[in-house]
């Protein structure tokens, strides 16, 4: 009996000390983690819109009573018609994970930019949505300052219309195409697929296409707000 108590007591003491030290670390790091997350979101938003716009958060209540937060970007000091566009966060079911992304839409319903916030797709295939094309190689670029380039998969969404379905071209990857070929794709409202990861590609185009409803909802909300103010 005595040993049972002794065993339980030792384990309890160890578990308590362990729990307390984890709690202490949590208190020290949780603020930084939250800051980190807000900062990540803010820099993603800033990268989507042109420089020098004012970004503010807003939200609306959707038809199914859920709250939809979104961000509006305005040209400062320009009065009437100063809205550059708005951005919202959404997700799509990818191959092995949910792909969360942030999309910025212009006043004429075209994509200003889109950026993937989080994904856990297959390394080497689906994760290539984050791949950037750079001329730097291991031999000359290791110690050079790395320029920040937008992933090619995400750049091809620029100026794609959200209200029309987005097509997928499987011929070649966007970053290998010429200027004319890129323009041709854009006129057909198409993006190129990542080789070997069409499921991931389709997940993102499908997700954006289904969000056309969200886009019109935000547009209506902004229009009614504008009307109300006048």
């Amino acid at each position: 009996m005595k040993t049972t108590i002794q065993l339980t007591a030792t384990l309890t003491v160890i578990a308590t000390v362990a729990g307390l030290s984890i709690g202490a670390t949590y208190l020290r790091t949780s603020d930084i983690i939250n800051q980190q997350k807000t900062q990540q979101l803010n820099s993603a938003l800033e990268s989507l819109f042109p420089d020098g716009v004012e970004i503010s958060q807003d939200s609306l209540i959707r038809s199914d009573n859920s709250v939809l937060p979104f961000w509006t970007a305005k040209q400062p000091n320009k009065g009437e018609g100063n809205l550059v566009g708005f951005a919202f966060e959404s997700g799509g079911r990818g191959y092995s994970s949910t792909i969360r992304y942030l999309a910025a839409i212009s006043a004429d319903n075209k994509i200003i930019g889109m950026t993937v916030l989080s994904q856990e797709e297959t390394p080497g295939l689906g994760t290539r949505v984050m791949e950037t094309v750079s001329k730097a190689t291991f031999w000359n670029g290791l110690f050079a300052k790395r320029e920040k380039t937008e992933p090619w998969f995400q750049s091809q969404f620029r100026n794609i219309s959200v209200l029309n379905p987005i097509g997928i071209s499987k011929k070649a990857e966007w970053h290998t195409l010429s200027k004319d070929q890129k323009a041709e794709l854009l006129s057909k409202n198409e993006v190129t697929a990542i080789t070997g990861a069409t499921i991931t590609t389709k997940a993102i185009t499908d997700a954006i296409t289904t969000e056309s409803k969200t886009v019109s909802e935000i547009n209506e909300f902004l229009a009614s707000k504008k009307g109300g103010l006048q």
Binding site: G91, R93, G94, S96, S97, T98
Partner: peptide, 11 residues
Amino acid sequence: MINTGINPYSG
């Protein structure tokens, strides 16, 4: 751990 996350089939 996987069960605490998101079900990729339903989102």
